[in-house]
Structures are given as structure tokens and as C-alpha cells.
Design a protein around this nucleic acid. Structure first.
Lengths: 128, 128
DNA sequence: CCGTATCCCTGACGATACTG
DNA sequence: CAGTATCGTCAGGGATACGG
């Protein structure tokens, strides 16, 4: 790749970071709650309330929104059972599982290096 | 991992998503400009103005802020040359290169699947 | 050239209340 | 139980101006 080219991940000229469509995919799967939802579903299919409990600190609104976004992108399958009380199961699709494995790998890498990063931060802060 | 456990990536009980320290690492390397900076540096060391040009649409403020964050975390090495006019070179550290390869992989995966995702979105929107 | 400082605004997010 | 609706807050990020 020539030096003069922009970094766009699309190989198309004149497509900058802001308008690059793959950015939206990346943002959805690496979002604050997207990562945790994918990780939770990677282990097993879940109900809404299960997800809410397993992922600590997520509001109903954000969980619903995250699940809708991931469903719309084709990463999550939603199955509503017409029973009383309502029951909805969420699971990963084929591509969703690929995505989940990738972000999960990134998360595990972060976890493995968090000590070193914390040390680096302290060293950085302690230098005048 | 037992079903009853929270998803925290730390294996520590009572540490929820919001306070999990590895989240901050993940957020820094997957941030809007973090991804693009790492990708740009993965190819080659860069000067500030080079990065600004290569990454379209980034403000000086955000580029400086992103580079500082990544430097503080120990992912980016900053070398200021005491010359007139000022010249500063940025490059990846060892861990920074690992991080860059991972996020770059995720970015390439996103790029490869963007067509399918776009189709999924349209299908989702067209169902009543 | 390489940033820092300031202002300001959008939109992400949480809290709360309500519905099928 | 599984959401939707509404409101308020506040931090991310752009624009601009200025400093070393």
C-alpha cells in the first residue's frame, strides 16, 4: 500500500474514516455493551433477563438497544415465544459467532495485558 | 465458566462491566481514532502531520489526544526531535504492534463482512 | 510544525415510569 | 417478563484560537 493512501480498510480512494462503512460494523461489535453481549452469547443462548443479570450494570434500555443493533446487523438471532409471561431467547448467528470469537479474543488479550498497561500508565504519569 | 458468573474478563467476582479495568484498555485500542492510528502505524512509523493526512477527517485535538492515550498505555513510542521546525516521530512498541495486529484483523474482518451486514440491515428494515 | 486551551454542542447513556 | 417512552445529565469530540 503506497504511503500516500488513506487508511480506510476499503481500498477505495476518497473514502475517509468518517464515511467508511465498515466503521459502523466495527463500532457495533466493539461498543461498550456489544462486546459483553457477544461474549455472553458466545458461551450460550440467553434470555433477556439472563443477559441483564450476567452483564452487570447495563440498563434495560441499553441492553435492548444493543441487542436490536446486533440483530439488525445479522449477528444475533431473536426468538420470541408467544407465551404468558413473555419469553425471548437470543443466540448468535453464524457470522455473529465469528464476530464474537474475534472480539472475545481481543478482550482476552486486553485482560492479559492490563497489568502491563497499568504499569506503563503509572510510569508515564510519574515522569515529569 | 459457570452460568451464574458475570461476564467480566477478569474472573474476579463482583467486578462488573463498568469497573472492569481491562475495559479501558479495550476502549483505547478500539476507539474511533485509536483503530486508525494503530493501523497507520502498523505499516510504518509516522510523523504527526503524516498521520493527520493519512487518517482523513481527524482533528488535531483528537489525534493528539489519541496518540497521548496510546503512548501512556505503552502502545506507542513518541520521539521528539529538537529541531526547528519541530519534528515528532511516532512508532509502535512491541505490545503496541500486537494490539495493532489484533484490531487490524478485526477491521479487516469487518471490511470483509460489510456487504453481508448491509444486506442484513436492509432485510431487517424491510420486514414489517 | 506540533501541539495546548477554550468554547460549545450533540448524542450516548442512565433513571424512571409505563404497557402488552 | 420484555420491552417502549420520556427526560435529564454529561462526556466525546469538532471548531477555533493561541503558544513554543
Amino acid at each position: 500500500m503506497p504511503v500516500s493512501k488513506q487508511v480506510t480498510f476499503t481500498e477505495q480512494p476518497n473514502v475517509n474514516a468518517a464515511t467508511c462503512p465498515s466503521r459502523s460494523v466495527l463500532e457495533h461489535i466493539t461498543s461498550r455493551w456489544g462486546v459483553l453481549v457477544l461474549a455472553a452469547l458466545l458461551e450460550d443462548g440467553r434470555r433477556f433477563s439472563e443477559l441483564r443479570r450476567i452483564i452487570g450494570g447495563v440498563s434495560e434500555k441499553m441492553l435492548a438497544q444493543t441487542l436490536q443493533t446486533l440483530e439488525r446487523d445479522g449477528f444475533v438471532h431473536r426468538e420470541a415465544h408467544p407465551v404468558i409471561p413473555p419469553r425471548v431467547d437470543y443466540s448468535l448467528t453464524e457470522v455473529g459467532e465469528q464476530a464474537a470469537r474475534l472480539v472475545s479474543g481481543l478482550a482476552r488479550w486486553s485482560e492479559a495485558h492490563v497489568t502491563g498497561v497499568l504499569a506503563a500508565r503509572e510510569a508515564y504519569d510519574n515522569r515529569t
